[in-house]
């Protein structure tokens, strides 16, 4: 039963990545870093775990593929909306941050609006 071993391996890898996402959520310094671990690692972990279950039971493969496709589509959208909302709300970056392209872009937009008027 090769596919059962592969499914169990994928489930174990997925749970490890979910645990790493939890640790990153605990250890990271500011909102944006936490958002990065809390979204990327969680997407990979949940995808791996769900596809592992789908490979372990081949008759469930279609449903698990739909669930993982949905997670793959919606997780970046929700994290992008949260990041944009917290940046517009004015929550500061961590101390060691060196680059803030969104703030530069917003300033440039304001200047162009002044020049136009």
């Amino acid at each position: 039963m090769v596919y059962r071993a592969l499914g169990e391996f994928l489930i174990l890898v997925g749970s490890l990545f979910l645990f790493l996402a939890g640790i990153g959520l605990l250890r990271m310094p500011d909102v944006y870093n936490r958002m990065q671990t809390g979204t990327k690692a969680t997407t990979l972990g949940a995808l791996s775990l769900i596809m592992g279950v789908g490979i372990y039971h081949p008759q469930w493969f279609f449903k698990t593929a739909i669930i993982s496709l949905f997670i793959l589509l919606t997780n970046p959208v929700s994290s992008h909306a949260l990041a944009r909302a917290s940046h517009n709300k004015g929550i500061p970056l961590a101390k060691g941050s060196v680059l803030d392209r969104y703030a530069e872009d917003k300033e440039r937009g304001l200047k162009e609006a002044e020049n136009d008027s």
Partner: peptide, 18 residues
């Protein structure tokens, strides 16, 4: 901040789906 709580909620919901 409240954004931290929202990020924690986002992560918790994905983990709960898995």
């Amino acid at each position: 901040t409240i954004s931290d709580r929202a990020v924690g909620l986002d992560t918790a919901t994905t983990i709960t789906t898995a």
